[in-house]
């Protein structure tokens, strides 16, 4: 049965005629009654993107975002009914979408917003609590990176751009490359500016080695890293955990 293929094609391509075998129910052509589906699909998926990428939308403006989303949803409809995951292909789409070629940081902003959403829905885990531990005991711990912790790397100042568009009191973005650590101590993901060596430390900690080993290896790779500041950031922001609590 091929009816649903031709129906899908016609829904996603407004220039194509409605499929055959349909009518208005009164013996006449289906006409704009078919457009109800075309409209529902594009409007509902556009709304899903508007919800998922608020900073991106603010950066390009509502009207441009809607038009861009219309192109994207027709080219890349969701692959799953879980719309919370929708937009994985948006960074790649933006990177090759000529109208935004002059805004090369947009794909990384989209990746940051995808990361925040992924973190929001990730499994719960109690943040590592080092209170009461002496330094040797703390450094011997072999914590896990919490399921809601993510790193987003960029050649652009995406942390400053994100802050300037979410906090009106924040300064305007300046400077070059910025990496971001996303953590979610309880329910609300937060991005943190990740200083030099942070990406390396996060990668090493995924290997479930002790904090002492991870710090030493980070310093070996990046001698200029401020390792104690990095470790404080990872612990204070709730990036690490000792236990994973899955559903």
């Amino acid at each position: 049965m091929h009816r649903q293929s031709s129906f899908t094609d016609a829904v996603l391509n407004p220039d194509r005629a409605a499929p055959g075998g349909l009518s208005d129910g009164f013996g006449g052509p289906v006409g704009k009654r078919f457009d109800v589906y075309r409209n529902n699909v594009v409007v509902s998926l556009t709304e899903a993107l508007e919800t998922g990428f608020p900073v991106l939308r603010k950066l390009v403006g509502d009207a441009f975002f809607k038009a861009m989303a219309g192109v994207f949803v027709r080219a890349h409809p969701p692959t799953s009914p879980r719309l919370q995951l929708y937009g994985q292909r948006l960074p790649g789409f933006l990177a090759s979408f000529p109208p935004v070629a002059h805004l090369p940081y947009l794909p990384d902003i989209a990746r940051l917003e995808l990361g925040l959403r992924q973190s929001y829905h990730a499994a719960d885990a109690a943040p590592l609590d080092v209170g009461g531990l002496d330094p040797d005991a703390m450094l011997a711990l072999k914590p896990l990176v919490a399921p809601a912790t993510l790193v987003v790397q960029s050649r652009y100042p995406i942390f400053a751009i994100w802050r300037a568009n979410t906090d009106s009191a924040a300064p305007g973005p300046t400077g070059g490359a910025q990496d971001i650590l996303i953590t979610r101590p309880r329910f609300d993901p937060a991005p943190h500016l990740l200083p030099r060596g942070g990406v390396t430390l996060a990668r090493l900690l995924k290997g479930r080695i002790s904090l002492a080993e991870a710090m030493a290896a980070t310093l070996a790779a990046e001698p200029e890293a401020d390792i104690s500041a990095l470790l404080s950031l990872f612990i204070a922001s709730g990036a690490l955990t000792l236990e994973r609590k899955d559903l």
């Binding site: 129906f7 529902n40 699909v41 409809p77």
Partner: peptide, 12 residues
């Protein structure tokens, strides 16, 4: 709501 192309997020 789903076909080879993907999930269309409407009740067709």
């Amino acid at each position: 709501s789903t076909h080879d192309t993907g999930y269309l997020n409407d009740l067709l």
